[in-house]
Computed example of a mutant assay.
Amino acid sequence: MSTTTHPTYYVPHSSPWPIIGAVGLFTLMLGGATLLNGGHATLLYIGLAILITMMFGWFGNVIHESRSGLYSEQMDRSFRWGMGWFIFSEVMFFAAFFGALLYAREFALPWLDGTSSSKPMVHDLLWPHFEDSWPTNGPGRVGGHFEPMSAWGLPALNTLILLSSGATVTWAHWGLLKDNRRQLCLGLAATVLLGFTFVVLQAVEYSHAMHEMNLTLGSGIYGSTFYMLTGFHGAHVTIGAIILLVMLLRSLAGHFTPHNHFGFEAAAWYWHFVDVVWLGLFVFVYWL
């Protein structure tokens, strides 16, 4: 990001992109609802196309404004605070899902099993033959028999891949700080490759789980929490890899300097957040 010395905010001219984005989101939501109720996916694709067009146009405007030196140091601080609060909101987002997993394992299951002193009658009245164990699909054996996902294999390999990508994006940052554009681009290219490799391997893992282990979203509390946590994380990895790909293309175009590169830093912050969340997932969803 290029900054100027004046302390004021840059006020852009009126832009059509906010209303276009709103129309795209509404069309996407309407298309999704139509698809869920047995309709065609046409509106869904139209909404997605509108949103992608909006992002290209709006982000392109922001990049042009930054490259033109229209942003002040105060705006640079505002962008950093904004990205910090955004990542905090994402932390709370995942904290809610980890909380759901904790509640199911540490509170709900002992209540149903009768081992919890706080709910002694739940076991006798509801499920007298239920025994607490994890992983479980609940007292009703919802979804039938399934095999739990082991931590060793593709999950462990994906952990190594994602941790390696954290190292490569840091190496790219060091290259940028040294004004070594070759190191910057190589590090970003490696990070993007590792990120998309993670997504592909997770798709392979999902296919194996659903077709060979009968582990689906309908497999009780274990299946729902497994796909909820890993699925949202996979979506964040996909978004992060796309963002880093854009940073790579901008780096190849010579957009960043050692002193002005918040766009790259924001992408790196987001990627490190994705790394940390995956470590929590690996430990609490796959391993324990």
Rank of each mutant, 00 (worst) to 15 (best):
L162Q: 03
S165N: 04
N260H: 15
L281G: 06
W271K: 01
G223Y: 00
I243G: 02
M75H: 11
A253G: 12
Y71C: 09
L279Q: 03
A253H: 11
K119C: 06
A190V: 05
T191S: 09
A189K: 05
I221P: 00
I243F: 07
G114E: 03
I221H: 01
H236A: 09
R105A: 10
V122M: 10
T216L: 11
H123M: 09
E265M: 09
V274P: 01
E73K: 14
M55W: 14
L126K: 10
G263N: 07
M149H: 01
G144K: 00
F98R: 01
S251R: 02
T115M: 05
H64P: 00
A268G: 07
L30S: 14
L48K: 08
F282N: 10
E131K: 15
I87T: 09
A151W: 02
E265V: 12
H236Y: 11
V200H: 08
A151K: 03
S133M: 10
L244F: 00
L163K: 01
V23I: 15
F86E: 03
A268E: 08
K178C: 08
L288F: 15
H261K: 06
P16D: 08
T170E: 10
S68W: 04
L177P: 04
Y206W: 15
G39I: 01
F196H: 11
L184C: 07
G143N: 02
H259C: 04
V122T: 15
Y71I: 11
L186T: 09
L109F: 05
Y71N: 12
R181P: 04
H64T: 13
T34D: 12
G140E: 07
M75F: 05
S207M: 10
V122D: 05
A108M: 14
S150P: 00
Q74S: 13
S150C: 01
L252C: 12
E106C: 10
H173T: 13
H173E: 12
L101M: 10
Y206I: 12
S117I: 11
H208L: 14
L125E: 09
F59P: 00
N180Q: 07
L48G: 15
P148F: 02
F284S: 14
